[in-house]
């Protein structure tokens, strides 16, 4: 009689007094979880990348035109900032500090935040050949906190040519000047601006 009652239960649902313990092992679950953990630990990166915009404003192909009378009027100030391999910053040939202090010294030469529509001085940044990219990025980061300059980065030894990069700024694009800066060793007839021929 008792065996007959047992056969009437659904298959796989056998309860006899105490609950039967699962025969499943945790070991495969742990193995698989560890594999997943190791995978994520190896391939995951926590670095967040950020862009440093060095877009050049002017596109090539713009035809050079003679400066208008309005453009000729203001005499634009041009400053030459050289970054040395040893970390020294030279403004127009004079040392003004290192990467942590040059910005404050440079700010004294700029028009400041209250310049309004006043034409911004052009700051040519020329890192020496063996300056590291890290130092350049640090310098550009510091220059962002110095208002009032139109910053153009030129390749080493090409201060009289087109810039390799520029720092974006919110102010108006200054009108070109035709006077070479006094510190340039090579006399030029045109400003080293982003204006493309």
């Amino acid at each position: 009689m008792r065996s007959g009652a047992r056969t009437s239960r659904p298959a796989g649902f056998v309860l006899e007094g105490k609950r039967r313990r699962s025969a499943l092992s945790m070991a495969p679950l742990i193995d698989f979880t560890f594999i997943l953990l190791i995978f994520f630990m190896v391939v995951t990166q926590f670095d967040r990348f950020t862009p440093v915009d060095v877009s050049v404003r002017k596109s090539p192909g713009r035809v050079a035109t003679p400066p208008s009378a309005q453009e000729r009027k203001p005499r634009r100030e041009i400053l030459h900032l050289v970054i040395h391999e040893n970390g020294d910053f030279l403004l127009n040939g004079e040392r003004i500090g290192d990467v942590t202090t040059f910005a404050a010294a440079l700010a004294r030469h700029g028009p400041g935040k209250d310049a309004g529509t006043q034409e911004r001085p052009l700051l040519l940044v020329e890192p020496r050949e063996n300056v590291s990219v890290q130092l350049l990025i640090d310098a550009l980061g510091a220059l962002r906190n110095v208002p009032g300059f139109a910053v153009r980065i030129v390749a080493p030894g090409t201060a009289g040519e087109r810039p390799a990069a520029e720092l974006p700024s919110d102010g108006p694009e200054p009108a070109p000047t035709r006077t070479p800066p006094p510190f340039m060793t090579t006399p030029r007839t045109t400003e080293p601006s982003g204006g493309r021929p």
Binding site: F49, P51, R162, A164
Partner: peptide, 15 residues
């Protein structure tokens, strides 16, 4: 690149 007309350039840095 700027001479070739590629003027939109960003240097990649780590925040």
């Amino acid at each position: 690149m700027a001479d070739a007309g590629i003027i939109h350039v960003q240097l990649v840095a780590v925040r």
